[in-house]
Design a protein around this nucleic acid. Structure first.
Lengths: 226, 226
DNA sequence: ACGGACCGTCAAGGAACCGTCAAGGACCCC
DNA sequence: GGGGTCCTTGACGGTTCCTTGACGGTCCGT
């Protein structure tokens, strides 16, 4: 299983060098050049680990860490030119997982990324398929079958369903769904939820008017019932 | 809650310096001077984190890591004089959590220890369900069952009950409930409390007129009695 | 016994929210 | 360019939920 890394760096040369090296070693790479787009990308792409350069044009690096830690525990490896000082300690205490100072050896960075991903996967053992009633949701292959028949889902429908499936039985708050499917900027666009919940029900429920799996909790969010 | 750290180092001077500094910052410290006793100490003391110097007299540092990883996931922060080379990568890939090269700043090391302990504690799944009588309040899933049956709560009812459940057995002052459920501006709107306490009792109590779980203390607040 | 402070109960109106349908437009692939 | 898929957006009816008011009960001090 390939891991996905989000590289946040405003220096194009370094970002490209990182991307090329990481891809050569089997990583999926997504990049962002400033804090704002880093937060968006983290919410939408769900990387397995984030490489964060502290020197960003629009936000302080520590703000990015806090912003991420407000809703996700994805491992963060901080990259910084500042060898000494309180930056390192502040970043770690804010919730960063590791801190590498420039210049750094590429293979050391990759070892630290592997360690960070390994830890977080040990922490949350990943289930690859979720079954609810006659539905089988294959998270690894991104496929859904209902009573054995394939169900065709659009990318957005899948992102919605995947999020619910990863939290099967749990109530997923409206804000979290909007953030992780449409991005942080859409946290108050509740219209999407209604439209896509209805579409999923039409495809997945025996009686869409009386859903037994994709259940609404008014004012709070949605739950995939086992 | 104090955390316990196991310091493994064969240089008495460094080991003592570490121990003194760590104790001064609120850690419980256990030390070991070689690999054999490090493995023993880890098994007996159950430290929250291990600081491991690679240069040990009796065993290679990587053996110690492997030995530990055979039975525990306690965070390991490796300490080494070797700045470069494959040691770093090997240690991380064997299961070390972090790697600090000498010389190092004491407060950086402590920040890394804090980060390692925080991560491993977050990884431990916190089972957060509160049980009172035949009620089961699942704080993570935002769900309440009574004698096994699901109870439907509105968002405000849930916020009220959740607050009481997080302080089960304790008297929660009226002002705190109003502040945390309706917002600071409503701290004197005690009418809400009466209405919602009554609604919750109707849903949760066998005999709403004589509540046994959601108890009022006149003039002060409400308590969820275990 | 009386008044005041506080609590519990019920009900109504309106606000917020949800489900549904469908049209417009962006995008991609022949 | 044409056809298809998909996302976005608007409008509308139905439901749920919050707020507010009115009334009665209990406890307590005077």
């Amino acid at each position: 299983m390939r891991s996905k890394v989000l590289v946040v760096d405003d220096e194009p040369a370094l970002a490209r060098a990182l991307a090329i090296n990481l891809r050569a070693h089997g990583w999926d790479v997504v990049t962002a050049a400033d804090g704002r787009s880093a937060l968006d990308a983290a919410a939408i792409e769900h990387p397995d680990v984030i490489v964060l350069d502290l020197g960003l044009p629009d936000m302080d690096g520590t703000e990015v860490i806090s912003g991420l830690r407000g809703w996700t525990r994805v491992p963060i490896v901080v990259l910084s030119a500042r060898q000494h000082g309180e930056d390192k300690i502040e970043a770690l205490d804010l919730g960063a997982d590791d801190y590498v100072t420039k210049p750094f050896a590429m293979n050391e960075l990759m070892a630290r990324l592997r360690a960070a991903v390994r830890r977080s996967q040990e922490a949350a053992p990943t289930v690859s398929t979720v079954e609810v009633g006659d539905l089988v949701i294959d998270l690894a292959r991104k496929r859904v079958t209902r009573a054995g028949d394939d169900v065709r889902l659009t990318p957005t429908e899948w992102a919605f369903l995947e999020l619910l499936a990863r939290n099967v039985g749990k109530l997923v708050p409206r804000s979290q769904i909007l953030r992780e499917v449409w991005g942080p900027a859409y946290e108050h666009e509740s219209h999407y939820l209604r439209v896509y919940a209805a579409q999923l029900r039409r495809k997945l429920e025996a009686d869409p008017a009386h859903p037994r799996h994709l259940v609404t909790t008014s004012g709070l969010g949605y739950t995939l019932e086992p």
